[in-house]
Design a protein around this nucleic acid. Structure first.
Length: 258
DNA sequence: ATGGCTAAGATGCTTAGA
């Protein structure tokens, strides 16, 4: 089966591209981030028309996550519960049962700047995520956590490490907090044997995509049985090069029978 | 890239992204 993750940067703006991509690629499950869609406003009918069921956690102008599945959808949990610095709880996590899998989609906060209150929020969110993931793993179901982590795990995951010195996404604190999530027992599927980690995000500005100046900040993490079943992990750069693209490309893992 | 794109909410701007 195929499981994908894609930060679409507005499901409404991206709907034609997402539907076209679903009909061409036919993943069993798509984990979506940045729907930027109010509660009740998700284009569910259009997605169902492509053969997928929808669970979405919408907020409005910012954030928002969803799971699209054509292998069933149940036991949906929303999260996480911690408040942003402005006191609001943002829509950044959703878990569900899809066929043989337990899956979760996550949109980790950007962090803005080192030392900013939203940077502390980002670290706290990753700690909350670690706790939630350890609960999901205790469920003993093959588990996939995918999404936009807003952390480049290694220097090789950004086009120019020197350009990111002192910036978010590459700091030891962020990498440590992401490492703690992995430490619950998850594996970065892009680092499975035979796979080559690839960029998933390119800034809209100044031809970054055309110039190959990207970052690997979207990840698919799997429990050990999922990691063993992974036969391929691919970034679909054609979706980034399409008209009116998201600034992120879809990332897809191929899983053998679980 | 110090921001020279994009999206959304209410507009001809602001906030946010990373």
């Amino acid at each position: 089966m195929l499981i994908s993750t894609w930060n679409v940067n507005s499901i409404q703006a991206r709907l034609p591209l997402v539907i076209e991509w679903l009909e061409r690629r036919r993943p069993e499950v798509l984990l979506v981030q940045e729907t930027k869609c109010a509660p009740g406003a998700f284009p569910t009918a259009e997605v169902e028309g492509a053969g997928y069921r929808v669970a979405d956690h919408g907020e409005g102008r910012w954030n928002g996550v969803a799971v699209l599945s054509r292998v069933g959808l149940g036991r949906v949990d929303l999260g996480l519960d911690l408040a942003a610095p402005d006191g609001r709880v943002e829509a950044r996590y959703l878990a569900a049962d899809c066929g043989p899998l337990r899956v979760a989609t996550v949109y980790v906060p950007n962090g803005r700047e080192l030392g900013h209150p939203y940077f502390a929020y980002k670290l706290a969110f990753l700690e909350e995520l670690r706790e939630r993931v350890s609960q999901e793993l205790a469920g003993r179901r093959p588990f996939v956590l995918g999404g936009d982590f807003n952390v480049a795990p290694q220097d090789s995951d950004v086009f120019d490490p020197a350009a990111f010195a002192g910036q978010t996404h590459v700091s030891p604190e962020e990498r440590g907090a992401l490492g703690a999530v992995l430490g619950t027992g998850l594996v970065d599927l892009a680092h499975q044997p035979g796979q080559t980690p690839a960029y998933t995000y390119w800034d809209y500005r100044q031809g970054f995509f055309r110039r190959g100046l990207g970052m690997r900040i979207d990840l698919l993490l799997g429990s050990p049985e999922v990691a063993r079943a992974t036969t391929a992990v691919e970034v679909d750069r054609s979706a980034r090069g399409a008209p009116r693209p998201s600034d992120h490309a879809p990332l897809t893992a191929t899983l053998a029978e679980l």
